[in-house]
Design a protein around this nucleic acid. Structure first.
Lengths: 213, 213
DNA sequence: ACCTGAACACCGTTCAAGT
DNA sequence: ACCTGAACACCGTTCAAGT
């Protein structure tokens, strides 16, 4: 017959975004989403193919908010800025890394960032092969940082935050682990965005030293 | 009363290892494990606290197999070898990275690898702070590589392996993405262990250049 | 002490039916 | 075309009971 739709892609994406913001990725499920929309799980499947497509839609919406800023003239600065941008865009929605991982390539609307990184690498004098290699190293580092950040935040949401690690440090055999056992108070620090950035610069410089004289 | 136990930690760990080897991490569940052991899910909870503890037991068993080899005298070689070892040990059971992520620190039986990395970094002339920072950068890179490898393997287990990415590359607007659109055949390559190793060396050298004159 | 059965509170997704 | 209800095939974990 045809009746006016009560749901829409946009409404679904928006409701999903709200759950993600307010309650985290762990609480986003098709059933939960349907409940919030006062609908049924199956109604959603009329508007999105499956949960992965929904997550990709969320990334698209997020990436579009970021303006395509110009890159610096200096090739090294270009590469660093592009890599930093990749991180910053995903840092607000680190749960998406899981989806991107299963896609290898980024979502189309985020692809200009990858292009920017490859471009920066080539402008630094790398061959296309080397540029793809550099992108991969940067992507592994970025994805690792984001995934471990998600895990860390999930852990600290629980009541026994950090207790396990502190106990492990306290029980360390100083003879077996001389370095580690003296580091217990240093360990939790250095997880800031600064640490990511300076690590990124180290990686870029390491790659540049390797691929260009 | 007390009756002879039919299950044991060892039997559970062994059965779990078999599922992991033969069918991958996705198929390891408490219910499935119980079925293989011709028991019930709840019987398992009498021998292990929860699923996380079971996974940590699996890592312990795995790490113990690796001999604690000596490190090279040259500090840089030491750092590289220790970081490579971290990767190699986990490469055979990349599903464990998830567990380690929720633990931040490694399991106790794998801790000597971390000690080795920190030790190598200090021997390279880094301060303790810098050594922890270097370890973190290396760990993010390693964890990212392993997690994305798991995702990739899961993807290629499915029938439509790579079709999506190939289509995405074919549809790329050459004007909007000049670099990427010329790279379609280069993309899948370079995912070998060689690429991990040379990326690792780049990272170590970048870190060394940053922290020591 | 060791194990079982049933239940709780969830998942993503399919299928057949309703308007 | 759009939506619903019931079902399929799963999860990890708790609780009360059995031997």
């Amino acid at each position: 017959m045809g009746r006016p739709p009560r749901l829409s892609r946009e409404a679904i994406v928006e409701a999903a975004k709200r759950i993600l913001d307010e309650e985290g990725a762990k609480n986003l499920s098709m059933r939960r989403l349907a409940k919030d929309l006062e609908s049924t799980p199956m109604a959603l499947y009329h508007h999105v193919k499956d949960k992965d497509e929904l997550l990709l839609l969320l990334l698209e919406a997020h990436a579009e908010q970021f303006p395509r800023t110009d890159m610096p003239d200096d090739p090294r600065d270009h590469l660093i800025k592009a890599a930093q941008l990749l991180h910053d865009i995903l840092a607000d929605c680190p749960w998406i890394v899981e989806v991107l991982a299963s896609d290898d390539l980024m979502a189309v609307s985020a692809l200009w960032i990858v292009e920017n990184i490859i471009d920066g690498a080539v402008r630094c004098g790398m061959t296309p092969e080397q540029a793809v290699y550099a992108y991969r190293v940067i992507w592994y580092y970025t994805a690792g940082e984001l995934m471990l950040r998600v895990a860390r935040e999930q852990r600290y949401a629980r009541p026994d935050a950090g207790a396990h690690r502190e106990k492990a440090f306290a029980n360390l055999d100083a003879e077996q682990f001389p370095r580690l056992s003296s580091l217990s108070e240093l360990w939790p620090a250095l997880t800031s965005r600064n640490m990511h950035r300076s690590g990124l610069i180290a990686i870029v410089d390491g790659l540049l030293g390797q691929t260009t004289g």
